[in-house]
C-alpha cells in the first residue's frame, strides 16, 4: 500500500502540477478483475476524496482504460450520474497496472444495503425513475461521438451477433442441459428486429453497480464493458432480470420497483422502449448468465481459477434454468 500511495502521489503531483499527499488509503472492494481503492488526495489547498480503479494488467481489460474514462465522461456530460474522472493512465509503472481516478461518491452500493435504504426512505419508485432517465440519456447519445477506442463488436444486427456468441458458449458446457438448449432455441426462433439506431450500451447496469443515497440515485458505476453498436434494450432488459432483485421478486427493476416508474423515466430521458426486443434481450441475458455460471464452474474444474465460489456457481445453474423456463412458457 505504501508503494501505491507513492505512485498515486507522483501521478497526481504531475497531473495537477503541485505536490499532492495521499492519505487514508483503503481498499473498498476488490473484485476478481480489478481493485477499487479509496483515498484522499491533499493538494495543499483542498482534500479531494477519490477512488482509484486499478486493473491488475492490461491483458484482462475489456476496454482500454482511456476509452472507459472517456465513455464515463461522455455519459456524464449527457446527464448520466457518473463519478467524475479526474485522471487516468495506461502506463503500468505508476501503480502496477492501468488505472483511472474518480471522485468518491458516498452512498450504498451493496445490493441488500441499497434495497434496505430504499425501503427505509420509501424511494424505490424514485430510484427506478432516475435510473430509467439515466439509461434514456445514455441511449440518446449520438453514437458518432463515442470515444474512438470504445469496444465495437462490429456491424450487423446486435441480436444476431449476441446469439452467435451464446451458441459458441453452449458448446463449452460440460454436460448437456436441455433447459438451456430450449432457451437457445427460443432465441433463434424469436430474433427481434434490429433497433432503429444502434447506441452506446453499458452492458452491466444492475443493482450492485449503482450508488444510492437517501436522496436517490447518485451514480452508475462499472463502465468497463461499455461498447458501441448495441441495442439499447440489452441494457434495459439486463436491469429487469430476476437475479438483481435479491428476493424482491415482484419488483422487476432490480428489486427497487415495478416497471412503470422506470419506463416513465426512460421516456423522459429520451429512450424508446420496445417490448418485443426487450423481451428477447431478457431471455438472452438469463441464458447468458446461466452460461456464465457454467463457465465459472468449468474454470474451477480445469484449474484456471480454482475457487470454492466458482465451484459453487455450477450449482446455481438451475436458478437460471428456472428463470429461463418461466420466461419462455409455451402459449404465453
Amino acid at each position: 500500500m505504501a508503494d501505491l500511495a507513492e505512485g498515486l502521489a507522483a501521478f497526481l503531483s504531475k497531473e495537477w502540477d503541485r505536490p499532492v499527499e495521499i492519505t487514508g488509503l483503503a481498499a473498498s472492494s476488490a473484485g476478481a478483475r480489478r481493485a477499487n481503492v479509496a483515498f484522499d488526495a491533499d493538494d495543499g489547498r483542498l482534500v479531494h476524496p477519490l477512488v482509484a480503479t486499478i486493473v491488475p494488467t492490461a491483458a484482462i481489460q475489456l476496454n482500454p482504460i482511456g476509452a472507459e474514462a472517456a465513455v464515463r465522461t461522455l455519459a456524464r456530460d449527457h446527464g448520466v450520474p457518473v463519478p467524475e474522472v479526474v485522471g487516468w493512465s495506461e502506463d503500468e509503472s505508476w501503480v502496477g497496472g492501468p488505472f483511472f481516478l474518480s471522485e468518491r461518491v458516498d452512498g450504498e452500493t451493496v445490493p441488500r444495503q441499497v434495497l434496505r435504504l430504499v425501503d427505509q426512505q420509501g424511494i424505490g419508485d424514485l430510484v427506478a425513475h432516475q435510473l430509467g432517465q439515466a439509461m434514456g440519456r445514455l441511449h440518446s447519445i449520438d453514437p458518432a461521438v463515442a470515444p474512438p477506442r470504445l469496444l465495437d463488436l462490429g456491424a450487423g444486427a446486435p441480436a444476431e451477433r449476441a446469439l452467435a456468441g451464446l451458441e459458441a458458449a453452449m458448446g463449452t458446457l460440460l454436460e448437456p442441459r436441455p433447459a438451456l438448449s430450449l432457451g437457445l432455441k427460443w432465441l433463434e426462433r424469436h430474433l427481434p428486429p434490429a433497433p432503429p439506431t444502434s447506441t452506446i450500451v453499458h452492458t452491466d447496469i444492475r443493482t450492485g453497480n449503482l450508488i444510492v443515497g437517501a436522496d436517490g440515485l447518485r451514480a452508475v458505476l462499472d463502465w468497463e464493458g461499455a461498447r458501441r453498436g448495441g441495442d439499447p434494450m440489452e441494457d434495459v432488459a439486463w436491469m429487469t432480470l430476476r437475479m438483481w432483485r435479491f428476493r424482491n421478486d415482484d419488483r422487476e427493476i432490480g428489486g427497487l420497483a415495478g416497471r412503470p416508474p422506470f419506463l416513465e423515466g426512460y421516456g423522459v430521458g429520451g429512450g424508446e422502449w420496445h417490448e418485443e426486443r426487450c423481451r428477447w434481450w431478457k431471455v438472452y441475458g438469463t441464458l447468458k448468465w446461466g452460461l456464465g455460471l457454467a463457465a465459472q464452474a468449468a474454470g474451477h474444474l480445469d484449474g484456471s481459477f480454482r475457487s470454492i465460489i466458482m465451484a459453487a456457481s455450477g450449482r446455481r445453474v438451475p436458478e437460471m434454468e428456472w428463470d429461463l423456463l418461466m420466461l419462455i412458457k409455451p402459449g404465453r
Binding site: 436441455p178 433447459a179 438451475p318 434454468e321 423456463l325
Partner: peptide, 17 residues
C-alpha cells in the same frame, strides 16, 4: 418438453436453492 424441464428444475432447486 417444457413441463418436463420445469419439473426437473424444481427438483434441482429443492436441493440447490
Amino acid at each position: 418438453v417444457w413441463a418436463a424441464l420445469v419439473a426437473t428444475a424444481r427438483d434441482d432447486l429443492a436441493s440447490a436453492k
